[in-house]
Design a protein around this nucleic acid. Structure first.
Lengths: 213, 213
DNA sequence: GAGTCATGGATAGTGCGACTATCCATCCAT
DNA sequence: ATGGATGGATAGTCGCACTATCCATGACTC
């Protein structure tokens, strides 16, 4: 198929497809001549994934490029790829510069959280996990606004989420085509986030409705 | 305190504070004279909340304004405010225009999800809940990429999330100052999202590490 | 084999959101 | 009385995600 057909079938304008090609979000088509290339179903799939990451996943073009590149890197095995996706995925957080007084509080809080997850819950997580930074950031922000975040709450969250994560990896592990379609990992990681958040809000609504009587 | 001090204590530039004032994210200070106003601790709190919504919460200035305005509206009681926050909060989703073939599939899927939550799980949720739209959108996107989303998965997610929602409302209900600091609801709803997502990613890492052996 | 037309590639332009900078006519504190 | 900050208005900047225009070429149509 040619560019115009790729554009039509995906619902993305020709100009935008060109833009994604330029930015490296899409593999170039097979050059059939200097001024003509052939695209296949894989390009279409990839294009759809890109759109999903940008819209549903809320990622920037640059983030999407990095993640897709890393997820495709054959140097990573199946499980590392999940890690890679996670390590590159937003939210990226700006840690305070070393030396400042905030940095100390930051490190302290981070260590507390890590200790809770590792020692108390027995989670095997890497020290440099960016999700840990994001978590620290969120907790400190909450605190700075005057809302306490107790250890108990955090533990409850963690315990509630763990079986979900387990189930998700089950699905990924069972996925037959996952070695060819590596993007599946990215898709699952990013695109299930809105599912989770939506359900949480709906649960809020339910609980609120019940209590109201 | 004056503008410069408000700026200093919040770490937000004077120009930005002026911008937020213009955009209605911040209440104007008490005009002590034509060219001088007085700001208090409430302004500082609010400014910090605004920054948190924009950075940690990833909201746009317009969204933050709408949410804060609604959350402050005295026409809403305690529980409605949670609803208000939820109904205004991102992600906002673009439903397909009526009449198109996608719209039919969209409605069908939405009805399925609603039935699952309402009839099977007994959740009391409103038909027009925007989170339901976001959920439908996410599921359809996943499907269009070739990833099946089974009813069972959804049910598992829902069941895992419900106790979390319950616990969150507990905290909010116990909050003594919540009637004065209505923003607490917004803060909890928005700022706990990154906590949830970060923990999910960390749980992924743990599960992945265990399975790797 | 001429004409038409989409293509790949390059480059420039657009629209928007979130600031940021400049001005100016006052005040207020010193 | 006066220099520096202030509120208010207006204009400018910057980054991002496109979008539009051009161009030389090559492929398909007749």
């Amino acid at each position: 198929m040619q560019l115009s057909e790729l554009s039509e079938r995906s619902g993305v304008s020709v100009a935008s497809v060109k833009y994604y090609l330029r930015e490296g979000l899409l593999q170039p088509g097979a050059a059939v001549s200097a001024r003509r290339s052939e695209y296949d179903e894989d390009h279409l799939r990839r294009l759809r994934l890109v759109r999903a990451l940008l819209t549903v996943g809320g990622m920037s073009v640059a983030q999407a490029r990095d993640v897709l590149a890393a997820a495709q890197d054959p140097a990573f095995d199946r499980h590392s790829r999940l890690g890679v996706a996670q390590y590159l995925l937003p939210p990226r957080v700006t840690t305070p510069p070393a030396g400042t007084p905030e940095a100390a509080a930051w490190q302290e809080r981070r260590a507390e959280v890590l200790a809770l997850l590792r020692d108390e819950l027995g989670w095997r997580i890497h020290d440099g996990a960016p999700a840990l930074d994001a978590l620290t950031e969120a907790l400190l922000t909450l605190n700075s606004l005057g809302y306490a975040t107790t250890e108990g709450t955090l533990r409850d969250y963690a315990n509630a989420l763990h079986p979900i994560a387990e189930a998700e990896l089950d699905v990924i592990d069972e996925h037959p085509a996952i070695d060819e379609a590596i993007e599946a990992v990215v898709a699952y990681t990013v695109l299930y986030e809105p599912v989770l958040l939506s359900l949480r809000r709906l649960a809020h609504e339910d609980v609120s409705a019940r209590r109201r009587r």
